[in-house]
Design a binder for these strands. Structure first.
Lengths: 341, 341
DNA sequence: TGTTAGCACTCCACTCAAACGAGTGCTAAC
DNA sequence: GTTAGCACTCGTTTGAGTGGAGTGCTAACA
């Protein structure tokens, strides 16, 4: 049996109707509300075929049909047409308060959540593979030194170092020079404790104090940066009865709060190269909690190895067209905004 | 009618039973499971009185009684006895990974959430009223300057400043000196744009460039610090049927996600001076979304004007003793941990 | 005067069966 | 290949009936 044009049309009609209503859809509905001009009986026959082929399924005998994961997959890959949506809104909302990255990201999830009515998450960009641009130690007072490290992409890390005995200005100057010449241009990965030890040796300074300072710097660099994750619209889950019963909702909410979800997803999509937009339907998702949902992720790229991930979590009957479209335009927006800054 | 000892005992029994079961409690239950040795009929009479006085109420005729907000209030203020709970667990869990403030706070909400089974939030400490300790401008490269400001309590802010034309080392040195001597020891509130203008004038430097740098510094200082808020255990809401229906849960989850909640609360409790622990029962809460819940907040104080707030959100039939106790010991823990660091 | 036993009454929660209706599968006719 | 028609299935809704928990009141008791 092959999936001819008519079957595709019917499948598409079934899915679209189901997306709107959330109810299983029957043959009569399709026969009435499409321009196929087929009787419900014919539709029934076709539906029976589609079910056998695995694109739709019946929750129980004598109920309408709902799309299977495989059905959604076909829909996303082939049937869904690109929709050229109005996105001036996003742009406008993003331009307000774009003075700080964090603000922008928070704004983005909010806009997305209210635009799509799904739960949304976004990770801050990670500077995986980025180079050290500048290091500076400065004396705050007699007991404390401030270490500041700037990496490409202008991310700044800092660490306050407490001292047991005073350090003199000259030593600090010397260390600054040494650190900058030795470490400049290296990636965070390339700088390890061994490297630091080598610097210590080269410097020929052996005071316990200095060792202490360098260790602190090494630590500041080595600390695995926790990627910030912003979320919005968690309550949208309750819009969809199929997710809103308390057992499921509880699980979803806690997964959402956990925030590891998105980093998992990001890791998964790393290999696959395409438009940068990934659609996970039900059990396709690498995270098992999400087996009753669909997750759409997009990777945004600010250049120079700075990448982050946006994720939208909704029911399987997600409005894929709208979501994918939103994400696409958002990627462009983020690019232009940050490239300018 | 006055609230005699026996009425108090009965009220206490009603509340405690209700806390456990979540079901309206009847006269027979009280008569059987307390050592008052009164028949259910007598209890009924007393309950009728208590209802008239507003401490308990009936969801409907011929149902048991549940505590009113006023009843809970009396319980929290008078009836509840201090419980000396085992809290070694908290301490132990907090000692893991205490290397960074953020980590500690995240850890704290998690422990609290799993200890109490309620939703919990914590704000990072704010340095309201703290003094500038150290300012440093440094040249990252020809186009960029890094401004770092350290305030008392060792919070570090930074800002990258883009330049249109190069700035020379001498100017930077001069500015550093000037900023440190002029601004050191002032609170963030005392430094305003006017102040900065005065410095510019005093410096006698009038290049457009310098103005730009100083403006950026002013901005970095003036930016209203967004207090970070960490949450945990949002899904605990679903443990309590009275909150778990989807309309209420949706509202609560979104309030929880919003995070403004806790800062509202913190503001509210600012005036009231007591143990630092505030209990808001139902409609007592300044946030109307919380009218079906109780919220317990505690203020932790790291000294030097550094303060933050912890909040626990649960049903009205919250286990107040346990919660208050947990918060109290936590306050102590936080104090010792951070005072050491 | 406070306490208790007894009883009628109320109201919710639960169960069960019947009615309903949406939808299917199959067959026979076009 | 398409369609009309019909029997059948099965989940959902409705409404009546029942049991039980709990109250309020009254009358008797200490």
């Amino acid at each position: 049996m092959d999936l001819d044009e008519r079957k595709k049309k019917i499948l598409k009609a079934i899915i679209q109707t189901y997306l709107e209503t959330g109810e299983p859809v029957g043959s009569r509905t399709i026969s009435k509300y499409t321009d196929l001009n087929l009787s419900s009986a014919t539709i029934r026959n076709e539906m029976s075929d589609l079910e056998e082929m695995g694109y739709i399924l019946q929750p129980h005998t004598s109920a309408g049909r709902i799309p299977s994961d495989q059905g959604y997959r076909l829909y996303v890959d082939e049937l869904m047409q690109e929709k050229q949506q109005e996105v001036a809104e996003i742009k406008e909302m993003m331009i307000q308060k774009t003075d700080r990255m964090e603000q922008v990201l928070k704004q983005v999830v909010k806009v997305l959540a209210s635009n799509t009515n799904y739960a949304t998450m976004i990770t801050g960009p990670t500077y995986h593979g980025n180079k050290v641009k500048f290091i500076q130690l400065s004396k705050v007072n007699e007991e404390q030194i401030l270490a500041v490290i700037v990496v490409e992409g202008n991310l700044v890390k800092n660490q306050i170092i407490g001292l047991d005995e005073p350090i003199n200005d000259e030593t600090i100057l010397k260390l600054n020079l040494l650190l900058n010449t030795q470490l400049n241009g290296l990636t965070i990965e390339e700088i390890n404790l061994g490297m630091i030890a080598k610097i210590k040796e080269q410097a020929g300074i052996h005071s316990k104090m200095v060792t202490e300072v360098l260790d602190a710097v090494a630590k500041a660099i080595a600390v695995e940066e926790e990627v910030p994750v912003y979320t919005s619209g968690a309550n949208n889950i309750f819009r969809y009865p199929e997710l809103a019963d308390s057992a499921k909702a509880s699980e979803l909410i806690s997964a959402f709060e956990e925030k590891k979800l998105l980093t998992e997803m990001a890791k998964d999509s790393e290999g696959k190269e395409n438009t940068g937009i990934q659609v996970y339907i039900g059990s396709e998702s690498p995270v098992s909690t999400m087996k009753d949902c669909s997750v759409v992720t997009a990777t945004y790229d600010l250049g120079g190895g700075m990448r982050g991930t946006i994720g939208i979590i909704g029911p399987k009957r997600m409005d894929y067209e709208n979501v994918v479209d939103n994400l696409k335009t958002l990627k462009v927006q983020l690019d232009t905004i940050f490239k300018k800054t």
